[in-house]
Amino acid sequence: MVEEAAKKIKELLKEEEFFAAVVGGSGIELPGVEREIPYSEIPNMPLPAVPGHKGVVKLLSLNGKKVLFFEGRFHYYEGREDWEIRFIPELCSLLGVRVFIPTCASGAVSRKAAESEIGVIYDHINLLGRNPLVGLIKSYGARVFVNGKKFYSKRLVNAFLKKALELGIDAVPAVLAANLGPNYETYTEIRLLEVLGVDCVSMSTVPEVIAANFYGMECVALTVFTNDTLNPEASHEEVLEKAAERSAKLGKLIGEALIHL
């Protein structure tokens, strides 16, 4: 199923493999697009159902490095099955992607995050109650027991933090928690996340990182802090607005960092 999608992308983009792939969170866009393909033209590709996720894969060229940008992802709170959550990471592995970079919009939990704009994720807590690798042991055996302590590449985390410092971009290392959603957190849940050492919370990214590691790619995740979770008012519209406002800096950071990897 995914093999057909990979074949079609190679055919339409006229490229055989790609250096990196970026998955866009709500409202996040990247500049420098050469060509693009709607998800609807890719065989077996699921279609996004959430506002801010357009459902387009774009080809970017960064200093000669071919980068795929998936503008639209899939969330468990939509009622998705595991194969849909795994689809983009598995597709990227078949396209020769070496560096996998999911991005997301997140709510700031720690005061460090609340006072910053962008987070470079170096660890996570999976509170989804779901794991995209469930059931794969039937096909892959012991290979599914991936090491969570190696999910995030120290090399990539350090590279992105260093580049952010050089560019004057307000970025901090962060621990991400993934909640199932689609509701935003209660005050008591936020206090619990603080006790657990969480800097920010989202409804995505974590399962993609798990799947990408399973498929053998080097990972780092980036987040735009779109709201302070302690603010009594929270809305998807606010998330999209703040993500759009800060996505230019995120795009610049990704572009500059990838050029030097």
Rank of each mutant, 00 (worst) to 15 (best):
M1D: 11
E3W: 15
A5G: 13
K10D: 05
L13K: 01
E15H: 11
E16K: 09
F18C: 08
F18L: 00
A20S: 12
G24R: 00
S26M: 11
G27M: 03
G27V: 07
E34V: 13
I37T: 12
E41T: 06
I42P: 10
P43T: 08
P46T: 06
K54A: 15
K58T: 00
L60T: 04
L62T: 00
N63V: 12
N63W: 10
G64Q: 11
K66E: 04
V67H: 10
L68Y: 08
H75F: 13
W83E: 13
I85S: 00
I88K: 10
P89I: 11
C92F: 05
C92N: 01
C92K: 01
L95M: 02
F100Y: 15
F100H: 09
F100Q: 11
P102Y: 10
T103Y: 06
T103Q: 02
A105K: 09
V109T: 07
S110H: 05
S116L: 06
E117P: 00
I118Y: 04
I121L: 04
I121K: 02
I121E: 05
D123L: 14
N126W: 10
L127D: 05
L128W: 08
G129E: 09
R130H: 14
R130A: 13
N131Q: 05
P132Y: 05
P132Q: 02
V134Q: 12
G135N: 00
G135Q: 07
L136N: 04
L136I: 06
A142L: 11
R143K: 15
V144H: 06
F145Y: 15
G148C: 03
L156F: 00
N158R: 10
N158A: 08
N158S: 15
K163Q: 12
L165D: 15
E166A: 06
D170M: 07
A171L: 03
A171H: 03
P173I: 02
V175K: 05
P182I: 10
P182A: 01
P182T: 07
N183V: 11
N183Y: 13
Y184H: 11
E185Q: 02
T188F: 14
T188K: 07
R191Y: 12
L193E: 09
L193F: 09
L193W: 05
V195A: 15
L196K: 02
V198R: 03
D199F: 14
V201Y: 01
S202K: 05
S204W: 01
T205A: 09
V206N: 02
V206H: 11
P207E: 05
E208W: 04
I210G: 02
I210V: 05
A212V: 06
N213F: 06
F214C: 12
M217S: 00
L222G: 03
T223P: 07
T223E: 01
N231S: 12
P232Y: 04
P232T: 08
P232R: 04
A234M: 12
S235P: 02
S235T: 12
S235I: 01
H236P: 09
V239N: 00
L240Q: 02
E241Q: 11
K242C: 08
A244G: 14
A248G: 14
I254D: 04
G255A: 14
E256T: 01
L258S: 13
